[in-house]
Amino acid sequence: MIRLWWLIMLLAFPASVQADELRPGYVEFTQNTATQWTLVWKFPVQGGFTPSTQPQLPAVCKGAGAPVREFSDAAVTTRMPVHCRQDVAGQTFGLENFNTLQSDVLVRIAPLARPVQAIRLTPAAPLAVISARADRWQVAQTYFLTGIDHILFGYDHLLFVVALVLLLSGFWTIAKAVTAFTVAHSFTLAGTTLGWIGLPQKPVESVIALSILFLAVEIVKRKPDDKRLSERAPWVVAFGFGLLHGFGFAGALKEIGLPEQDIPIALLTFNLGVEAGQIAIVGATILAIEILQRRFSMLLSPTIKLATYGIGITASYWFIERTLT
């Protein structure tokens, strides 16, 4: 019984209130001239990374200056100039002392004369070979897993989906609302990424926080004999907010960029990764609610209420933070 209660609470209260984090760690290796590169790596303060976790440069490269560190947004960002005496294609790049409990680190390699390449590093595979041109399978795998990361570590999107499930009842009602949310954010994700449409990111992030707060209020004010708009036409509400969340997904995807020669497959697999993570969240939430309802029905109502207030408080904090910063 206690484990079931904590399952609901873990879905409602992420380990950190930092929203919309695309990945636990990020490394960018960008070419400026024929021999000059810039290396940037960003690790979260609470991510389990240590000062000994450092990028391992290709054998043909070496640091050309002292690293400069900045502390912001609960993360440490380090920047360092690098000199490479020849092409890095075929060379090994990775991380030293990468033995944390965190998930993958995304590496973005941007040469001057070739498409941007994205590589994922894990504690089990901390090194990778830089390709002259990334093959399509590597692109598909990288962006699919990145999409899963974003829905699971992008806590604002996660909380919106959880709140949507808590608000509604009935499998098909939830399925229709989640489908509407999916279709809507797929439209704006593709349109924004391809440069067809766009909105300023700051206001979008603030309104995304408001969308979560709106659902939390709807759950608290829900009455069985007086259905509100969000219950009478949940797909309309989900579709409208889904359009906004798509701009948020696009903003996160913009951080790593898309491989110029494989944009369609990267965009498609990123979106599929988001959907895979979303299905997992919906399934886990429905399963937890169903088990509580069948076996510990007296805990269901107080658990949902407590989770809802937690979601609303978190969303309010995000809205204030994003509006003032």
Rank of each mutant, 00 (worst) to 15 (best):
Phe319Leu: 15
His150Met: 08
Pro58Thr: 03
Gly198Pro: 09
Val27Leu: 15
Ile119Cys: 00
Asn271Arg: 07
Ala124Glu: 13
Leu267Tyr: 06
Pro14Arg: 12
Trp6Val: 15
Ser72Cys: 03
Thr192Asn: 13
Ala140Asp: 07
Phe214Arg: 09
Phe43Thr: 01
Arg23Pro: 05
Thr38Tyr: 02
Ile109Gln: 09
Ala75Thr: 03
Asp156Ala: 11
Asn271Gln: 05
Val116Trp: 02
Val220Trp: 07
Leu164Arg: 08
Ser230His: 02
Thr77Asp: 01
Gly312Lys: 03
Ala15Lys: 12
Ser103Pro: 02
Trp318Gln: 12
Asp20Asn: 15
Leu300Met: 00
Pro224Glu: 01
Leu10Thr: 14
His185Ile: 05
Ala288Thr: 13
Ala233Lys: 14
Gly310Asn: 03
Val178Asn: 01
Thr285Ile: 06
Met1Gly: 11
Ile8Lys: 12
Ala59His: 14
Ala66Pro: 04
Ile208Tyr: 09
Pro115Asn: 04
Ala12Thr: 04
Phe93Gln: 00
Gly154Glu: 05
Ser297Ile: 04
Ala216Cys: 00
Thr323Asp: 05
Ala19Leu: 10
Gln102Ala: 14
Gln86His: 04
Ala12Met: 02
Leu300Lys: 10
Ile313Glu: 00
Ile279Thr: 05
Ile263Asn: 03
Phe29Ala: 03
Asp262Asn: 08
Gly154Met: 04
Thr122Glu: 02
Thr30Lys: 15
His83Asn: 12
Leu243Phe: 07
Lys221His: 10
Arg3Lys: 13
Gln56Gly: 14
Met80Ala: 07
Gly191Ala: 15
Arg114Tyr: 00
Val139Trp: 10
Ile263Trp: 07
Val165Pro: 12
Thr142Ser: 15
Lys223Gln: 06
Pro126Phe: 03
Pro24Val: 05
Thr314Asp: 06
Phe187Arg: 01
Gly63Thr: 09
Val107Ile: 10
Lys305Ala: 04
Gly251Cys: 09
Arg322Ile: 08
Trp318Gly: 09
Ala288Arg: 12
Trp37Met: 01
Glu28Ser: 11
Arg3Pro: 12
Ala250Met: 07
Ala177Ser: 07
Cys61Glu: 01
Ala110Asn: 09
Phe144His: 06
Thr325Ser: 13
Gln201Asn: 13
Ala276Phe: 13
Leu164Thr: 12
Ala250Glu: 12
Phe171Trp: 14
Ala118Asn: 15
Gly273Tyr: 06
Glu290Ala: 14
Lys42Ile: 00
Ser206Lys: 14
Ala124Cys: 05
Arg120His: 01
Ala284Pro: 08
Arg79Leu: 02
Ala64Phe: 01
Phe171Val: 07
Phe144Met: 15
Phe270Cys: 05
Leu292His: 10
Thr314Cys: 11
Gly246Asn: 13
Pro200Asn: 06
Leu210Thr: 00
Ala132Ser: 11
Thr38Ser: 12
Gly310Asp: 06
Ser316Lys: 03
Met80Phe: 01
Asn32Ala: 08
Asp149Ile: 08
Val68Thr: 03
Val139Asn: 08
Ala216Gly: 08
Val237Ile: 14
Ala19Ser: 14
Pro259Gln: 06
Lys305Gly: 01
Val204Arg: 13
Phe43Met: 09
Trp196Ile: 05
Gly25Cys: 01
Leu101Gly: 15
Ile197Gly: 03
Gly240Asp: 07
Gly191Glu: 02
Leu268Thr: 13
Ala288Lys: 14
Pro259Gly: 07
Phe249Pro: 13
